[in-house]
């Protein structure tokens, strides 16, 4: 564990806490893409298969449980909670995310580290996470003005993988045998997808104005 990875995990945790706060405090999920939340739940479920078989550390196990639990809770909330689900902007959340699942799974069957069930699902979860934010970004552009907590949620979610990129650079130079190209390339693509969001987020922060994404 290095400082970059810890910062990345904490930033990721903060993004989830901000989203939970928004949904709990405002009893509303307006502006949040259910499709992105479903993709993230799938990412965690296919990545943390080793939760019950390989014990790495208390931290590792606890964080996996938190990520799986929170993502499923958010999906449940947006689908079933009698108050929250009414504020879900179904007509704005129209990205065909099933294509993302199919495309990333096809890629995982072609590009993987080892051709085993768990490695294929791990590669699938890595590729899927890279594109999981697309429905949310598209929805933000459609919904025009972005409320404060939603903007912070997306910002922290994008920032966490940037810390992981620093972690992979650090591990590459400090650990002889460390190569994880699939995660590195996918993490770069993932962070790049946030580039324009980060730009508009920075502009809104500098001008102390409301975050607005161009349609």
């Amino acid at each position: 564990m290095n400082i970059f990875r810890l910062a990345g995990d904490m930033t990721h945790l903060i993004s989830i806490l901000v989203l939970l706060l928004k949904i709990y405090a405002t009893k509303s999920c307006s502006g949040i893409s259910l499709k992105t939340q479903e993709l993230y739940a799938l990412v965690f479920l296919t990545r943390y298969l080793d939760l019950l078989t390989d014990f790495i550390s208390i931290y590792n196990t606890v964080m996996k449980l938190v990520f799986i639990g929170s993502s499923l809770a958010i999906v449940w909330c947006m689908r079933r909670h009698r108050v929250v689900r009414r504020s879900y902007d179904k007509e704005l959340d129209t990205f065909r995310h099933y294509f993302l699942i199919a495309a990333t799974f096809a890629l995982a069957v072609l590009v993987y580290e080892k051709f085993t069930f768990r490695e294929i699902l791990w590669a699938f979860s890595i590729y899927l996470e890279a594109v999981a934010i697309l429905p949310q970004l598209v929805m933000l552009q459609r919904s025009g003005n972005v409320d404060n907590l939603t903007g912070k949620y997306v910002f922290f979610l994008g920032a966490y993988r940037a810390f992981y990129i620093l972690n992979w650079i650090y591990r590459y130079f400090t650990e002889a045998r460390f190569t994880r190209w699939i995660a590195c390339v996918s993490g770069l693509v993932q962070t790049a997808l946030y580039a324009d969001f980060f730009y508009y987020y920075f502009i809104s922060w500098k001008n102390n104005a409301k975050l607005k994404l161009p349609a």
């Binding site: 080793d50 964080m63 990520f67 080892k114 992981y164």
Partner: peptide
């Protein structure tokens, strides 16, 4: 044992 599944990152 070096777990074949050496994914120690989240």
């Amino acid at each position: 044992a070096a777990a074949s599944f050496d994914k120690d990152e989240l």
